[in-house]
């Protein structure tokens, strides 16, 4: 984590992105949550913000993976100043059996959770690849 002292206040600049690539297996999304919590903690997010990002990244993975079948999720966590950006892309996924069950409006629940927990989020198709992204700003407590 980069950091410098300037006029007595902490100044944080962009740090090296953290990348994670996991097969779309439901039990491995845990790794995405653990990485989110670690990156947020190192960026100086407070406990509530760490929890929020952990859940938001879980929902982002679920949204992107919903019709991913046998593909992989490639996540990139980038910290710039007081903001963490997470991009989740689906590599090589194929639809299977209509994708994630949505009989109880789970997709809408995911979107509501993201709306509440992060500053910005979105989904897009780019060159046939599904991507989701989010940005969350934290309170400046200094790196831990």
């Amino acid at each position: 984590m980069s950091g410098a002292v300037e006029d007595g206040s902490e100044v944080r600049t962009m740090s090296e992105p953290v990348e994670l690539s996991i097969p779309i297996q439901s039990d491995l999304i845990l790794l995405a949550r653990l990485t989110a919590a670690t990156v947020a903690s190192r960026a100086g997010f407070d406990v509530e913000e760490v929890d929020d990002l952990r859940l938001a990244v879980d929902e982002l993975c679920v949204l992107v993976a919903e019709d991913g079948g046998s593909g992989r999720l490639r996540l990139t966590f980038t910290t710039a100043g007081d903001t963490i950006e997470v991009v989740c892309a689906l590599d090589g996924g194929e639809s299977q059996d209509g994708g994630r069950p949505d009989e109880h409006g789970e997709r809408e629940l995911s979107v509501r959770i993201l709306d509440a927990l992060v500053d910005e989020h979105g989904e897009e198709f780019d060159g046939g690849q599904r991507r989701g992204w989010l940005r969350k700003r934290g309170v400046r407590h200094g790196p831990s």
Partner: peptide, 13 residues
């Protein structure tokens, strides 16, 4: 200790 939209869907069901 953790709950997401998929589990909320189960509770709604």
């Amino acid at each position: 200790t953790f709950i997401d939209s998929t589990a909320l869907g189960v509770l709604i069901g």
